[in-house]
Amino acid sequence: MFPAAVYVLCFLTSACCAWLLGRSYARSRERLLLWSSACFILLAGNNLLLVMDLLIFTDVNLRIGRLLLSLSAISVLLFGFIWDLEDDAA
């Protein structure tokens, strides 16, 4: 029961972070907040897949999907950092 609670809390935390970052982006229009929000949306999706993989669909392996979501999340954030750095340098 304890691992299930931890998985669900991780999903809720990352979803809440994505929502707060998105709300801050809507107010300030800082692009770094947009990229961070997109990263946390993907990380929340990763955590949701983890919950489904380990608790709901125990006979199906969703590891590849989780890895792809993690890779996408880090790629989006890295792209945002590089794009912001290039715009600041110009």
Rank of each mutant, 00 (worst) to 15 (best):
residue 15 A to N: 04
residue 32 L to S: 08
residue 56 I to N: 01
residue 52 M to A: 12
residue 58 T to L: 04
residue 15 A to C: 08
residue 48 L to F: 14
residue 3 P to G: 00
residue 12 L to T: 02
residue 83 W to Y: 14
residue 41 I to H: 06
residue 16 C to W: 15
residue 64 I to A: 12
residue 82 I to P: 00
residue 65 G to T: 01
residue 49 L to V: 03
residue 89 A to H: 08
residue 42 L to S: 13
residue 9 L to V: 10
residue 84 D to N: 11
residue 29 R to L: 11
residue 50 L to D: 04
residue 63 R to W: 12
residue 48 L to V: 02
residue 68 L to I: 10
residue 68 L to E: 08
residue 29 R to I: 03
residue 2 F to D: 11
residue 88 D to I: 14
residue 40 F to L: 07
residue 83 W to M: 11
residue 83 W to F: 12
residue 78 L to A: 15
residue 78 L to S: 14
residue 48 L to C: 07
residue 80 G to T: 09
residue 89 A to S: 08
residue 65 G to N: 04
residue 14 S to W: 08
residue 71 L to Y: 10
residue 1 M to Q: 09
residue 71 L to W: 13
residue 88 D to T: 12
residue 57 F to Y: 14
residue 80 G to F: 11
residue 36 S to Q: 13
residue 4 A to S: 13
residue 55 L to P: 00
residue 63 R to L: 12
residue 85 L to V: 07
residue 63 R to V: 05
residue 82 I to E: 09
residue 20 L to G: 01
residue 86 E to P: 00
residue 37 S to F: 06
residue 27 R to K: 14
residue 41 I to N: 03
residue 8 V to R: 03
residue 16 C to E: 08
residue 25 Y to C: 01
residue 58 T to P: 00
residue 18 A to K: 04
residue 8 V to C: 03
residue 40 F to Y: 15
residue 72 S to I: 03
residue 66 R to H: 06
residue 9 L to W: 06
residue 67 L to E: 14
residue 43 L to G: 02
residue 40 F to N: 07
residue 4 A to H: 06
residue 34 L to P: 01
residue 5 A to T: 14
residue 79 F to K: 05
residue 36 S to N: 12
residue 62 L to C: 01
residue 38 A to I: 09
residue 46 N to E: 11
residue 87 D to G: 02
residue 50 L to W: 04
residue 64 I to T: 08
residue 54 L to I: 07
residue 22 G to F: 12
residue 67 L to R: 09
residue 3 P to N: 00
residue 17 C to E: 08
residue 21 L to Q: 10
residue 24 S to D: 12
residue 77 L to R: 05
residue 14 S to Q: 09
residue 83 W to E: 15
residue 29 R to M: 06
residue 79 F to Q: 07
residue 64 I to Q: 07
residue 57 F to E: 01
residue 3 P to D: 00
residue 26 A to Y: 07
residue 70 S to F: 15
residue 76 V to C: 09
residue 56 I to K: 03
residue 16 C to V: 07
residue 34 L to G: 04
residue 73 A to R: 03
residue 71 L to I: 11
residue 47 N to L: 02
residue 30 E to D: 12
residue 62 L to G: 03
residue 50 L to K: 05
residue 8 V to M: 06
residue 2 F to E: 14
residue 27 R to S: 11
residue 29 R to P: 00
residue 5 A to I: 15
residue 5 A to F: 13
residue 20 L to C: 05
residue 33 L to G: 02
residue 40 F to T: 01
residue 19 W to Y: 15
residue 33 L to Y: 07
residue 26 A to S: 13
residue 7 Y to N: 10
residue 1 M to K: 08
residue 69 L to I: 00
residue 81 F to M: 14
